[in-house]
Design a protein around this nucleic acid. Structure first.
Lengths: 230, 230
DNA sequence: ACAAAAGTGTTAGGCCTACACCCATGA
DNA sequence: TCATGGGTGTAGGCCTAACACTTTTGT
């Protein structure tokens, strides 16, 4: 029968939300993609996302789709751009609000309903469905901007980590190398790191110091922002 | 008869674009608002904007509505956030892609079809229709961020201007006062200003030097960005 | 004569950058 | 023993911030 139950005086586009999920494996930035099981673009990799319900916001939609498709719950997502090119979806006019999020790799447990989800290192990323290549490029450039004005890392690193891991994270995101000493000084001066445990007395200097973020200072700096010149 | 000609299997929200238009009167930042002639919120002031056609992008919509409502043509608008709260429009579910633009006051000629449009200084702005107060607050905060990383001014100031006017612009946007000498030095060091005309030999030092933007350097800096610490 | 606006330079402190060596470990 | 990774300090340059006086004009 006629399934077209929702009618309007003027044409309305469909609304969707998509998510670019960034993770960090200790060396490289990774992006979480899902393989499409249905047409269009069946078999192609795509960003997690989907159509918006009529009673939810774009952000709620993004978080719901993320949980359905990857098992990630209560993820903090940040809206960054709305894609409204007329032909971006072959089925009908779809406007998509794009978000990004930073998560720890360990939070995504493989093997459940999320079996179609996989983390890709940047150089492995295949060509994506729809205009998702474009969305991903813009997300990466926003991430680069953001890292210079707000602390990032808490969301991506394990609870305790070494300075080298933190430096690797910054280098992976920005694609440049830093002087190790200068990086140490800069980070320590910010005051957002605490030593996670004192170095055991007998331990050699070969084993690196482990840090954790000082949540209060971290939140404070996140609030007021800063400038990192790299 | 039944005017509901467009039907879908699932409900679709309506899509709109709104624009926050910033101008500068030499002393204060101003915002261009229009008075609503129809319900809902008839008589209230609102941001220029309106519903998206099915064959245009959000940005095209913003520019079209802007021209229709204020006479501004070919304005460069920048998308900054999409508002999708469920109850933000009392008529139906409407998702709005918000944009902002910088224009010279002189570009808006009053008295034509745009007779409902008026420039408001920040402290005069009344409570607005829909969630436009919220949209405006976010636009202002984006403008403040932007001024620290890209040159702004070319779009807002007349072609030739004095250093004091430029300083007033920065002070108006950021809401803080600068030391005059330091501001001079900083701006001149950026290299985006040229003296518009040499000081007439007999002119006194009371009449200020007039500058214009050096388009090449300006575009270059806009491209690669910079950091102004204020 | 006084208030108001424009123009101009210096100094001190902080931040950024570049750079080199030692130690401990595992191969 | 050699290569690798971790830890550490300093010196020079640049930018920033703070700061005062002179000139001219309009009132």
């Amino acid at each position: 029968m006629d399934e077209l139950k929702y009618s309007y005086k003027y044409p309305h586009p469909a609304m969707a939300s998509d998510c670019v999920i960034f993770g960090f494996d200790g060396v490289s930035i990774r992006v979480l993609l899902i393989q499409r099981g249905v047409e269009p673009f069946k078999g192609k990799w795509a960003l997690p996302g989907g159509f918006m319900n009529i009673d939810e916001t774009a952000e709620e939609c993004a978080r719901r789709e993320l949980e359905e498709e990857t098992g990630l719950k209560n993820t903090v997502v940040e809206q960054f751009y709305t894609f409204s090119e007329v032909g971006r979806d072959p089925r009908e006019r779809v406007v998509s609000v794009a978000h990004y999020a930073l998560v720890r790799l360990s939070e995504v447990k493989g093997g459940d309903d999320a079996s179609m989800a996989r983390w890709f290192a940047q150089e492995e990323i295949p060509s994506l469905a729809f205009d998702h290549d474009h969305i991903l490029r813009m997300a990466i450039s926003r991430l680069k901007e953001r890292i210079c004005f707000e602390p990032i890392g808490f969301e991506l690193l394990p609870e305790v980590f070494t300075m080298t891991e933190l430096q690797n994270l910054y280098e992976a995101i920005l694609g440049i190398k830093f002087d190790r000493r200068n990086f140490y000084n800069k980070m320590l001066k910010l005051g957002i790191l605490s030593e996670a445990e004192p170095r055991p007395a007998q331990a050699s200097r070969r084993v690196p110091l482990r840090y954790r973020f000082n949540a209060m200072k971290y939140a404070e700096l996140k609030q007021k922002g800063f400038r990192l010149e790299f």
